[in-house]
Nucleic acid binder design. Structure first.
Lengths: 345, 345
DNA sequence: CTGTTAGCGCGTTCAG
DNA sequence: CTGAACGCGCTAACAG
């Protein structure tokens, strides 16, 4: 079992280069105070032995603990609850990585409150992951954090134009295009109207999804005519009323695209109309509800972003920034999942 | 930045319980030689302080290095090359986790060679990840590994009925069902024939995909009539000939489902027939080619398993088994991805 | 400019 | 049955 070579340590390199351990450390960590020729000799040994630091030992020796904070909205929609649950799990994963995490839930609909909360984090955390709200005050707060040396990632909802280090979430206009293609293809050339129900069009992600959707329908599916987008405030009751209205007003309704939350209401309206199996229904986010709707056939496809993946990714990325370690970009890319009844996880 | 509580160490617990560090260690690691009352006192302190071991320190102190081996087929199809590349990256990730990995490429089409290669790994590795081939000799070899204390995970292709600890890959019959639903829905009620091109029907995963596909079409899309499945040996040239044959023989061909590899050939045949835009084409695995075909419209959907995810997952799972650490099941579940032109990563 | 040394938190002897 | 002491690979003071 042990015919595999032991990985070289700093001591091995030191011996090989005829210097002390500390000198090798200085060279490897590019610290000053070493003569040019010594540097050269050590670097030679370093590459010759193929030295790579043992991260466990590094963390142990450094002994610093990083503190991170996740800022999520207080809202109670299912997706945000799932995200919060997943963030909780990431938090205690962080606990095992000589790090520490807190979760803060603030009213995201009040930008000033959010901005103040963010500013209050300065000096207390090495990194912050925040579900951003598109508002100048929030952007300024994010920039203030960054300028004070805090690593900031936006989660789920981005804040372009800010100095955030990275966005962890999906491209919402691509998600909207995906919804458009699914509905367009599922319609199979049939003529008809398209009902669009968003949470709020002043939410950047909803607006982007709508944009992508209309782009595809306009370009490739002229047989389908999108109706003006309605706003259901991510509320099931309100969404149900809107959907019922669409169903009553348009005998030729071919599909409904739900851009935000409140899908339970839409399904109720569909079922009550008796047209649930005829009308294509595509929505976002895989929850216990949308899963059931897919299985029972009242929903045709779900476009999803994996909350668990996003939460873990945020934790990994913040830790990587803080420790200066490289990250696996591939692994941190959040995909736009498409779920049908058949490929549910 | 440091108003966060330092996590308790064994020393803290020892002080709290009025015993020595060594005793706490014995209790925590359930080693014998501690009186009942001492055990009790220590355990109380343990939970009271909420002790959790520092994994970095544990690994450092133990100093064991785990050796793992990835066994992949020598074949040169694009997916396996991608997998190999991703395994390479996982290998050097393992290098950072006080572990060590090798990759072995063997001719998977010769079960005896594979079985012998696997047997040769006994005693040399703590864990093995293998792209299995469905054959009794291989099953026996896997069982022999397990019986000799080696952790075994099957990768991409499972070996049910063996003692392997875990399978890392997708449910292929669900993948087949997904293909069926996509084609069924994209056809939009149109009548027509379905062309099926597999690599080899004696490959378990291809057979399962076919099964799932036919199940869905038979149940939900009676307007579509599957033709007998053809075998293209994952070879582009042969696949092209088969596809050309299908196109020539069936004016009412509605779709082609490519179960295995060789998609380049199929696209060529489709393009040359001039019917590429009319005929629905669904295939497996996102490669540089299928990506291009999606974008240019000759392919309509790709059903994918993420090779990078699989390679990383195998490494994480083997390490978790070896160290006895818990794994995040959620994270290790390989999804059946659906990619359209619009949601390409 | 370079070397010595004391830990980091834990596992593991080896005495008592 | 229990405790003291050393070492894993590395960082960070502190000497020289």
């Amino acid at each position: 079992m042990n015919d595999h070579p032991r990985r070289p340590t700093l001591v091995d390199v030191a011996e090989h280069a005829q210097v002390s351990l500390a000198t090798v450390d200085r060279v490897f960590n590019r610290r000053p105070g070493v003569s040019a020729k010594t540097v050269e000799r050590v670097e030679l040994a370093l590459v010759k032995l193929g030295y790579r630091p043992d991260p466990a030992a590094v963390r142990l020796a450094r002994g610093i603990r990083f503190n991170f904070c996740f800022v999520l909205p207080t809202g109670t929609n299912t997706f945000m609850s799932m995200l919060a649950a997943q963030v909780d799990r990431s938090l205690d994963w962080l606990g095992d990585q000589s790090a520490f995490g807190d979760m803060l839930r603030v009213d995201v609909f009040d930008p000033i409150v959010l901005a103040d909360a963010l500013r209050g984090l300065i000096g207390r955390y090495h990194g912050v992951a925040v579900v951003a709200l598109d508002h100048p005050a929030v952007r300024d707060a994010i920039n203030a954090l960054v300028e004070n040396g805090v690593y900031v990632v936006t989660l789920v909802s981005d804040m372009p134009g800010s100095k955030r280090h990275r966005f962890i979430g999906i491209d919402n206009s691509a998600a909207g295009r995906t919804a458009g293609t699914l509905i367009g293809r599922f319609a199979g050339g049939r003529k008809g109207k398209l009902g669009l129900i968003a949470g709020s069009l002043s939410l950047r992600d909803h607006a982007e999804r709508l944009f992508g959707f209309q782009q595809v329908i306009g370009a490739d599916y002229r047989n389908l005519a999108p109706l003006p987008a309605l706003e259901g405030n991510d509320n099931a009751v309100r969404c149900k009323a809107l959907a019922a209205g669409l169903l009553a007003d348009h005998r030729d309704l071919a599909a409904i695209y739900s851009i935000g939350a409140g899908n339970r209401g839409i399904v109720e309206a569909l079922e009550e109309s008796g047209r649930a199996r005829d009308i294509i229904f595509v929505a976002h986010e895989l929850t216990e509800f949308s899963r059931r709707f897919l299985l029972q056939g009242s929903m045709d496809a779900v476009i999803n972003q994996d909350a668990g993946h996003e939460a873990r990714s945020a934790a990994r990325v913040l830790l990587a920034y803080a420790t200066g370690q490289p990250m696996i970009d591939d692994q941190e890319r959040i995909r736009i999942d498409i779920f049908l009844r058949d490929n549910l996880p």
